[in-house]
Simulated assay, not measured.
Amino acid sequence: MDFELTDEQRIAQDATRRMVSQEIEPLIAGYDPDQPLPKDATRQLIQILAKQGLTTARLPEEAGGSALSALTVGLILEQLPPVAQWALGAQEVTIARIYRGSTPEQRARILPDLIAGNKITCTGTTEPDAGSDPRSIRTTAVEDGDHYIVNGTKMWVTNASVCDVMMVTTSVGRDENGLSRMMRIVIDKEESPFTTRKIPTLGLKSGHLGEATFVDCRVPKRNVLGETGDASRVLTETWIANRPFMGLYAVHLAQKAYDAALAFAGERVQFGRKIAGFQLVQELLANIATAITSSRLLCYYALSCIDRGERSNQISAMAKRYSLAACQRAISEAMEVHGAMGISTELGLERLYRDARMLPIPDGTNQILTLIEGREITGIPAYRA
């Protein structure tokens, strides 16, 4: 088994680090990390990432995409600060979802502005009463001539409060089991107005996690994507890669906490010597390093399984669930290394902890991921498949 990265992957990592230090960090440095990044700044951020081909990471080359392997995308995403990971994640996955099942006319009309970052986009699936079970959605789309009339509410949508375009999962009726027959439709806020608001959250405060409300929203039929009933499949296909990506977001946060803890332990003096020489401090550092390394390798392995075309439901769920738990614990232990300073807002470790605590929610909660793993192990679903 070869654990070495290819020259191409190392180059991609190095190029991303340079982009972060030279373009992204100077852009976000002027804004309060505990306040939402203004829309213009968010657009600029996405445009910087677009120039590196990151908004088309999962699109084939013939469609103008980067056609990057899942592992290469993960290696790149791991280098980005949380606000960039969050904004890009919603933009890129929505572009990938729109591409799947869309017609050449739709791709030519909708995608260029999203790919370039001229318009901010996102996916609206979760609702107040439908989260882990998307087939329980109640947002409706009713035919009206050449339009659909959309009514409903979407919640916990990344980029919602600054979006220009949203891909919305709607219900066009119920099947014999009472489940929604889901349809995907692209809603451009300028031609089909809807309202949005940011939802205040514990962490990732510079991002734009929000709610969208559609009241008699008239959307042209030409914006319907794919076939009715394909929404669940398209969402699942993209969630499988998103889960180890989310795990690598946590690795990024834990790595920053570890770097700070290691530096602090080498400087802080108590009882006449540096605390790095104390056995229990070394234990904390060893625990953190182990959590980061094991999480990183598990996520890399999950992405490499996806690249090989293997069935990756179990390993993808495992990668996210394990990495987020391990890295949250690692950040907490890094705070312990710092003693009282660890809980200060001045140091910033508490922000890393809050940001990491946000990550178990999107793309499958810990409990749903556990049940996915259990289903794959036993062949018996513990919830509706």
Rank of each mutant, 00 (worst) to 15 (best):
G207R: 02
L248S: 01
T170V: 07
E78R: 11
P128S: 07
G309T: 08
L68C: 04
Y300G: 01
G247N: 04
T370M: 12
E346P: 00
A212I: 10
N313P: 02
P112C: 13
A289L: 10
L88M: 08
E105K: 14
E191F: 10
T56A: 09
I361R: 08
A382G: 15
D188F: 07
A385G: 06
A90H: 04
A84M: 08
D146Q: 13
M358H: 02
Q79P: 06
A263N: 13
E143Y: 03
E92P: 03
L54Y: 11
T201A: 09
N242S: 15
A241N: 04
I187F: 04
R268W: 07
G131L: 14
I380F: 15
I372K: 05
S295L: 00
G207I: 01
Q85H: 04
K256P: 02
T370K: 06
I76N: 00
I76S: 01
E267T: 15
E376L: 12
T94D: 10
T158Y: 01
T158D: 03
G152E: 02
P33Q: 11
D34M: 13
I368C: 05
R138V: 06
P134L: 14
L80A: 10
I137F: 00
T238E: 15
K221N: 14
I110S: 10
A340F: 12
T201R: 13
L204Y: 08
A302T: 01
G272M: 07
I306P: 04
N151V: 05
V93Q: 13
A70D: 07
S192G: 08
A326G: 05
A265L: 06
Q9P: 01
G173E: 09
V73T: 14
M166A: 14
R233M: 12
T169N: 11
